[in-house]
Design a protein around this nucleic acid. Structure first.
Lengths: 150, 150
DNA sequence: CAAAGGCATGAATAAATATTCATCGCATAG
DNA sequence: CTATGCGATGAATATTTATTCATGCCTTTG
């Protein structure tokens, strides 16, 4: 049997990597990853992880929490990872369209002590570091997390 | 027949005023308010309004996204605004449980040039100011907005 | 070792939510 | 006026998700 922790890890990973519209679909993807699970268990997992089902432009989608911020930070430009000029105390990550929430909650879930929190738009994540002094270190830390697939 | 617009207004109002855990409950509350609606229609309304069902410490709860009427702000009790010690570059607003989103999006919608964006949890809003220098001014500005909503 | 308690789990079932399908009222074009 | 189209709606139904009810596997305690 697969450990609960590992399974939930994989669930998060899957939810971050693509659009999944319901638990049935999730069950199938887990199966492809070699993890068999009953719908009842998955429902409980989703509950524990705080996964919520919400409507999108095209159908439904399971989303992880902390995907909450809905505001769009205007005027943000930038590729990859760079610091914001505006107040020099935040980090901006550009993602593929629609993926920002995923990246943001992935970072949240890492629970980095150097990060206070994130704001995710559609294709932009704003990361608030715990300290402005360490900002370049935090950038490196994030980059390493994002480049190494879990 | 009740107009769709009016009904959806009332739905928002109800969701703001108390915890509602499922559509059946919502139907009953609407009925008490003199609005009869079939579950099918309510499901569509919820979809249009972006209402989502999420787990809380105690059971389930229907929650609204973004746009929250100003009236909610008026009803806030015991709200405190304080700066975060952690990095001295953000502002924390404590709200009643479940109201943080409302406050956050209210602030967003004010479109203050001194504010980059907000992060809303369940009862906490994190406000990111455009500049750390002006942080105390921003706190004042927010306080005035929250204390005397139009 | 045996007993007891606690998780984690799946099968079956219940509950909640979404969709299909038909209809109605209203507006507009002919 | 009649026909046509369209959005809103409810009843019935389908789909999805949550819960109940065992059961098995650990761990702890005696």
């Amino acid at each position: 049997m697969m450990s609960k922790q590992l399974r939930q890890m994989k669930i998060k990973e899957l939810l971050h990597s693509r659009e999944i519209s319901n638990q049935g679909e999730l069950i199938r993807m887990l199966e492809q990853a070699g993890i068999e699970v009953a719908q009842a268990t998955l429902s409980r997992d989703c509950s524990e992880l705080g996964v919520v089902r919400s409507r999108t432009h095209s159908g439904y989608r399971l989303v992880l929490p902390n995907d909450t911020p809905r505001q769009i930070i205007r005027g943000l430009v930038g590729m990859e990872v760079q610091t914001i000029e505006a107040n020099e105390n935040a980090i901006v990550i550009k993602t593929l369209p629609g993926r920002a929430h995923g990246v943001g909650s992935y970072l949240d879930q890492l629970n980095m002590s150097s990060v206070l929190g994130t704001i995710a738009g559609d294709d932009t994540v704003l990361v608030i570091p715990a300290s402005i002094r360490q900002i370049s270190l935090v950038v490196e830390e994030i980059q390493s997390h994002l480049s190494q697939p879990s």
